[in-house]
Simulated scan of single mutants.
Amino acid sequence: MTSHLCWAAVLAGALLAGCSPAQIVNGLVPSTSYRLETGMAYGPQPRQQLDVYRPLADRPPAEGKRPLVVFFYGGSWTTGERADYRFVGEALAARGAVVVIPDYRLSPRATYPVFVRDSATATRWGIDNAARLGADPRQVFVMGHSAGAYLAAMVALDARWLRADGGDPSQLAGWIGLAGPYDFLPIGDPKTQVAFNWPETAPGSQPLAHASAASPPALLMVATHDRLVDPARNTGRMAERLRTSGVKVEVRAFDDLDHVTLIGAMAKPLEWIGGPVLPPLLSFIGLAPDPPASGEPSASHRAPH
């Protein structure tokens, strides 16, 4: 049986057993390839906690030289738990990065800009603790998927939020957005309307409005046929605005992925679904990609000019 069929059988069995997609993906990744510290507080609220994934001691680069990635998950600003994204922490920590995955307060109990403030506070925690965690404080990146990509963009582009915590976007080495909504006014989705207080939504809530020459370098990854977040309107316009401002930006578009599988493909066993997503991401944060496995099919992805 080919590796494709093996993993397909595993996924089918897990789905029949009633497992969630996150449980399925987490069940496919190793649990011995990183060190994990859970439930660390970055603020006084119950959801202001984070998990830290650290590389094993023998994983290059050396202690103190590792990049640190603060990852924000998606969920339309209304759902999500940091434990569901162990596969993201493992994918990066097993290859040499320190990874911080925070929870943040969610709508409808919290609305804009509360979740942005939480994201900035968690990022400042990562910057302040990078050296203690064995990472380079000069190599801190923010990263997110979907609504989490929005949060990463706001922290990186809108200086108000990090400065409120005594930091600054200039402390970031870059930001990474996967299928991010960066320009979504007017708001039609009812849950998002609540999260952003529509129709009183502030124009400054849109990341695109804050792209400037001062923005950190960016890696923007997108599924070409994403039906949830328009890739042309969001990733396309963001890339154009950054480039026009003189900011270094790399765009990776994947023809065989969708909004959800774009993040799922970060789990090494699931690269066959349309990746590889990991190699450009690892390169962007300064880590060596895995050597290609012999006999594996090539991926359908593009690097737009």
Rank of each mutant, 00 (worst) to 15 (best):
V114P: 00
P113E: 14
L185A: 10
T32Y: 05
A97M: 11
P102T: 05
E250M: 14
L178I: 01
G174C: 01
V98C: 14
F184E: 09
T224L: 13
H301F: 14
A62K: 13
E296F: 03
L68D: 12
I176T: 00
H4D: 15
A223M: 09
V194D: 13
L56F: 14
A120K: 09
L133W: 13
D168G: 06
A202V: 10
R132C: 06
L11V: 10
Q23N: 12
P280T: 02
L50K: 02
P60C: 03
P186M: 06
L151G: 01
G177T: 05
D51C: 11
V142I: 14
L133T: 10
G27M: 02
D189M: 15
S245V: 01
A214C: 02
N197I: 00
V88T: 14
L257H: 00
L11H: 12
Y53E: 13
F184H: 12
A288V: 15
G13Q: 13
T32C: 06
A232W: 04
S212E: 01
V229D: 06
W175E: 00
G144T: 09
A41C: 03
P55E: 08
Y112H: 14
L28A: 15
A211I: 07
D189Y: 01
S298W: 04
F71S: 05
E63W: 15
H305K: 13
G204F: 02
E200I: 06
G286V: 08
P44I: 06
G274I: 00
A62N: 07
I263Y: 09
P46I: 02
V155Q: 08
N26P: 04
R47S: 03
L287F: 12
A156P: 04
S205C: 11
G75W: 04
L185W: 03
L68W: 13
G74N: 00
P289A: 08
P21L: 10
L68C: 12
A223G: 11
G275I: 07
R243H: 11
A253S: 09
G80H: 04
V142D: 11
G204Y: 14
Y104G: 09
L5R: 13
G18V: 07
L50V: 02
A156M: 02
C19S: 15
D84V: 07
G64T: 03
V251K: 02
G246T: 10
G295A: 08
L56I: 11
P137A: 05
V98Y: 05
G274W: 00
R160H: 13
T38P: 04
S33W: 07
A211S: 08
W125S: 09
P269N: 07
T78I: 14
I285S: 01
A91M: 11
R109K: 14
A22C: 06
E81Q: 12
G89T: 03
G89H: 04
